[in-house]
Design a protein around this nucleic acid. Structure first.
Lengths: 146, 146
DNA sequence: CTTTGTGCAAATTCTTTGCACCAAA
DNA sequence: TTTGGTGCAAAGAATTTGCACAAAG
């Protein structure tokens, strides 16, 4: 809790009960939660919490660079409090999102058209089938062909 | 037009007037158009075209691997008919999306957790300011500090 | 015929907005 | 007391769904 509060201050974000709770949630849940998931979970502990506040807060966090906002899912934005370099993998069957290694940074190209661009963030998204769903798919295919 | 038709056939997609038009549009417009942009433009030539068909069609194309569906924009999906390896850059000021070079493929990691994953597609998204907006920002900052 | 694609309208869902109230410095 | 955060309800916008009709083989 204090770690979350300090982290907010370090990132130039004024702490509040709601903000600390949301930041703590993100630090403790590496599941790339959606607004809805965060809201539903925290609503139990803080019944007065509103979804608007969750939206506002996550927007502030992302703008201040305290968290990452992921667009790997087509429907809804997901959030990641883990800032180390890594890529993301989304299973197109179960929709689970996994952190995966990213050996070295993907460099932003420097050429005639991009030389005056100011790159701020780079994301690497993989999509496919996770181990569980890949196996399930195999089994289904086998059954079908019999 | 025939190229688009053949391309659909090659990708296992039954051609129709609408599908050929949409595929041709994507092959000719490297602007990463949204459903709305595609619909609005094609609607002029094919007045009976419906937005639902555009949605259906793009979904089929992406599933068959004929096009890429991009989630670089938080609000709406964008589509790319250009299949060569490349990354994308989105200007967070003017929202323009640019193709940018990607020197070498980003390899999907092979480790204990991912070894049975089946990776299908990998996307690299950069976000920041394009040359035009970066310059505009500079100028604004200068004016402010005076 | 029978399967597959198209298109309209309605419904869904994620997100934003406007505004009033509350809390902290 | 003034600035900024919170929360409710309503609005907005992208996408999906249900269903009837049309087209193609």
């Amino acid at each position: 809790m204090d770690a979350a509060k300090q982290y907010l201050i370090d990132n130039g974000i004024k702490p509040s009960v709601q903000r600390i709770a949301i930041m703590l949630y993100l630090l403790e849940h590496r599941s790339h939660p959606t607004v809805d998931e965060i809201f539903n979970d925290l609503h139990k502990a803080i019944p007065t919490l509103s979804k608007t506040t969750v939206y506002n807060t996550l927007k502030v966090f992302a703008e201040k660079g305290a968290i990452l906002s992921l667009t790997i899912d087509e429907k809804m934005v997901r959030f990641d409090g883990y800032k180390q370099r890594h890529a993301h993998f989304k299973c197109i069957s179960c929709n689970e999102i996994y952190d995966v290694e990213l050996d070295h940074d993907v460099e932003f190209p420097n050429n005639e058209t991009t030389k005056d661009f100011e790159n701020i963030e780079t994301h690497v998204y993989h999509r496919g089938y996770c181990a569980k769903c890949a196996k399930k798919k195999e089994t289904n295919n086998k059954l079908k062909s019999e």
